[in-house]
């Protein structure tokens, strides 16, 4: 069928009508957009009440942190890293798969170097325990460092775990004297006693005193990293006393969370190992 010829007048008329129809499209889009936003689970309020924190440097001044809920976490191809702000013992018991261990010690600040290596446009999701206080301190620190794209996971690790999402664990392992005897040549002992209480010590040992308030010393961590020994055994005097067990677990967790996956605990008395060495 032949098309009707279009004259200049018809064209001008059509162009004029198109302006009216354009308003029609606009209002129809408004209707659809508001309707969809109303029923959609990820819908947002029509008016935002607080400014975006993209160009501010201190959230504490604003009194509001950029929180993100579990259902709004980026998915699929989007680059996202998780920062675990909890302490080592919580981290090893379970953490989000691939999360950075970035504990907020009561005294020390965390090492922010891993963040500098992140790719463009990476989402940084910080989480803590249920009360998320550590995460709040970490996110304040990151924002003060002018690092952008950071969010705090509302409800912390608990909501992640409760939702049934993947959790990575580093269970602590215990070794007995027989195992130590068999593998003695491959073991570096990590002595957690205070330096002044180390009268008797194992020759192949490194001192790693316990202090919950501070991050471990860098030079000790470097020495542990550079060792040629296959296994690290955390030891102390009277390792079977409840208070000492806690310290052993704490130190082993600290090392485990920092990527030493060959860390074990000896719950017996240090004297036994010294005797073994002397034999």
């Amino acid at each position: 069928m032949k098309n009707k010829k279009i004259t200049i007048n018809i064209m001008i008329k059509e162009l004029g009508y198109s302006v009216l129809k354009a308003f029609g499209i606009f209002f129809f889009s408004l209707l659809v957009a508001f309707g969809f936003n109303h029923v959609y689970s990820n819908g947002i309020p029509l008016i935002r009440k607080t400014p975006f924190e993209v160009s501010t440097d201190c959230p504490e001044v604003l009194g509001e942190l950029p929180e993100i809920t579990l259902d709004k976490l980026p998915r699929g191809s989007q680059k996202v890293v998780y920062m675990d702000a909890r302490m080592a013992d919580e981290f090893v018991r379970g953490h989000i798969q691939g999360a950075f261990f970035m504990p907020m010690y009561p005294v020390d600040n965390p090492n922010l170097k891993p963040l500098k290596k992140l790719e463009k446009g990476t989402w940084i999701i910080v989480y803590g325990s249920k009360k998320v206080q550590n995460a709040q301190r970490l996110i304040s620190l990151l924002m003060n460092e002018q690092i952008r794209g950071v969010h705090i996971l509302k409800g912390g690790f608990k909501v992640w775990k409760d939702s049934g999402r993947k959790v990575e664990k580093h269970p602590l392992e215990y070794k007995d004297l027989n195992w130590i005897k068999e593998n003695f040549a491959d073991i570096l002992f990590v002595d957690i006693r205070e330096p002044d209480s180390r009268e008797n010590k194992i020759s192949e040992s490194i001192n790693f005193p316990h202090d919950k308030l501070l991050a471990p010393e860098k030079k000790v961590l470097t020495a542990l990293k550079n060792t040629s020994k296959k296994h690290l055994i955390v030891v102390t005097e009277n390792g079977d006393e409840s208070e000492n067990i806690k310290k052993l677990q704490w130190n082993a967790a600290e090392l485990n969370a920092r990527g030493f996956d060959n860390v074990y605990i000896y719950r017996g008395d240090l004297k036994n190992i010294i005797e073994l060495e002397n034999k």
Binding site: S29, L30, A33, L46, P51
Partner: peptide
């Protein structure tokens, strides 16, 4: 202005 950003974020994609 930040107050109207949400409004824009709702309408523009549907348009």
């Amino acid at each position: 202005p930040y107050k109207y950003i949400y409004l824009m974020a709702i309408v523009l994609p549907w348009l």
